[in-house]
Simulated scan of single mutants.
Amino acid sequence: DAASIRRTLTMQAPEWRKARTALRLGKNRLTKAHKSLLRTVTTADTEVGTAWRLKEQFRDLYRKVAPSNAARYLRRWIDEAQSCGIVAFVQLARMIDKKSDAICAAIELGISNALIEGINSKIRLINARGYGHHSAASLKAMIYLNLGGIEVKLPTQR
């Protein structure tokens, strides 16, 4: 059974940290050492191997699949995730299935909220860097200064 398979894989803490890093990385960013470690972990624990493969296949939906094939690819991924037996992926597949039309439309139209999310992250950083601001107006001024495309040249710069 799976528990006995997991027990056969013994690693020290530093190896587990490296394995966790390898599992989080995308297939395109793996080094030879990561690939070897990943092969060891996914062979010893088939559930981890299945989870990693499903994660990579879902990433491929956005990176490699032609927009015209997105709906068909996503349907196959949902079916596979629902039948994999991993509770978290079954729940994820159900949730994605409910939103599949919107996901496919976003892929086909090339729409993403990544730009807005990036701006929100920068605003949170500006606020944290200022240790809070005296007023909303001062925060707004810092946001415009940092993100408004204004280039301030000091008198000592040419």
Rank of each mutant, 00 (worst) to 15 (best):
Ala2Tyr: 11
Ala2Glu: 13
Thr10Lys: 15
Gln12His: 08
Ala13Gln: 11
Pro14His: 14
Ala22Pro: 05
Leu23Phe: 01
Leu25Ala: 10
Leu30Ile: 00
Leu30Cys: 02
Thr31Glu: 00
Leu38Arg: 05
Val41Asp: 05
Thr42Pro: 06
Thr43Leu: 12
Asp45Tyr: 06
Asp45Pro: 01
Gly49Asn: 00
Gly49Glu: 01
Ala51Val: 01
Leu54Thr: 05
Gln57Ser: 08
Arg59Met: 03
Tyr62Cys: 00
Lys64Tyr: 08
Lys64Val: 00
Ala66Asn: 10
Ala66His: 11
Ser68His: 01
Ser68Gly: 04
Asn69Val: 06
Ala70Gln: 06
Ala71Asn: 06
Arg72Thr: 15
Tyr73Arg: 03
Leu74Tyr: 01
Arg75Gln: 15
Asp79Arg: 07
Ala81Tyr: 09
Ala88Phe: 03
Ala93Phe: 05
Met95His: 14
Met95Asn: 14
Met95Pro: 02
Ile96Glu: 03
Lys99Trp: 06
Glu108His: 04
Leu109Gln: 15
Gly110Tyr: 03
Ser112Asp: 08
Asn113Ser: 15
Asn113Asp: 15
Ala114Ile: 04
Ile116Phe: 08
Ile116Glu: 12
Ile119Pro: 07
Ile126Ala: 09
Asn127Ala: 14
Gly130Trp: 04
Tyr131Val: 06
Ala141Ile: 01
Met142Asn: 15
Tyr144Trp: 13
Leu147His: 07
Gly148Thr: 02
Gly149Ile: 02
Thr156His: 15
Gln157Phe: 08
